[in-house]
Every structure is written in C-alpha cells, then in structure tokens.
C-alpha cells in the first residue's frame, strides 16, 4: 500500500511526513516524530496511557489512524509545559500531590485532565473520577491523581483571576 503525505500540527509545530495510512497515531508520534510522552499500555483502547488531545478531543492514539489525524492539531503531554520549559500547572500539581507512582499512566492522565479542566474548570470529585474513567492507573488507587487534578483546577482558576 502506498504511503500518504501527512501534515499536522503537533505541540504547536507544523509536521510533515510520509506514512502508511494504517499507521496508528501513537506509532507515528513515538516512532516517526520521537515524541515519547504518550505511552503504549494496552494498545487496545482500554488503558488510556496513549491519550492525546486531537482537535480539542481527548482520544486514545492507539485507536486512530494517522490518516484520520491528517490536518489535525495534536497536543501531547510535552506540549503542556510552560513557555520557558518549566512544568505546566497540572504537571506541577501531579508532582506536588504525588499523583503518580510508576509514572506510566501519567502522560495520559495529565493530557486528559488538561481537557477535562478546560471543559469543566470547577469539577467536583465525582466529575473528576467520571472524567478520567478512560485512564487506568495500576499503582495509586487514584486518590492522589484526583487530588492533583482538583488542586490543578484551583491553581488554574487562581491564575485566571489574577490575570483579570
């Protein structure tokens, strides 16, 4: 099968490449672009470790063909740092609240939390748990992940207020 010309914006940078349409977005990101933040956990759309933001939707990059993402805007956990390269708010809150143990699920958790908090800036604990239901963590029992996301919401809202 012939390769196709793929163009997309990844973490704010324009990217062009030749790829087979069947290439999964997660493989394209990790192997062609060497963006290894999104992880391959189950590769069967269950675990959410490969979660990226695709045109304002949280998606599992193991269940999207690169052809479907042609022309799209993709954000991975690498794109959530501050402009100066320091940890973004959600990343910092995961560190501060110990929202990870082995860290494997963390890029997917943080990328999911990023969109969750854009859509619902003041989530209840239940909203957070429901919102991250597509991301599995086998270490933490989720408690500190939920705390980290709640703290992120507070920090982001404080930031917004300060800016106004």
């Amino acid at each position: 099968m012939s390769k196709m010309h793929v163009k997309m914006t990844v973490n704010g940078k324009a990217v062009e490449a030749l790829a087979e349409p069947r290439t999964l977005l997660i493989h394209f990101l990790r192997e062609d672009l060497k963006i290894t933040g999104p992880h391959i956990g189950c590769e069967t759309s269950h675990c959410g470790a490969c979660t990226v933001d695709l045109d304002g939707k949280s998606v599992k990059a193991c269940t999207v063909f690169v052809a479907q993402a042609n022309g799209a805007e993709v954000t991975t956990v690498e794109g959530l740092v501050n402009d100066d390269g320091s940890l973004g708010v959600i990343q910092e809150m995961f560190r501060e609240h110990h929202g990870l143990q082995c860290g494997f699920c963390t890029p997917g958790m943080i990328t999911r939390a990023h969109l969750l908090l854009q859509e619902n800036p003041t989530p209840s604990e239940e909203d957070i748990r429901f919102g991250i239901a597509g991301n599995l963590c086998r270490c933490t029992g989720y408690q500190n992940i939920v705390k980290a996301i709640a703290a992120s919401a507070d920090a982001l809202n404080a930031q917004k207020e300060a800016a106004e």
Partner: peptide, 9 residues
C-alpha cells in the same frame, strides 16, 4: 457508553 475518550470519537 464506554469512557470519555471513546465518546469523543
């Protein structure tokens, strides 16, 4: 239905 990521697509 499913989970948030699946529901977006």
């Amino acid at each position: 239905i499913a989970d948030p990521q699946v529901r977006y697509l």
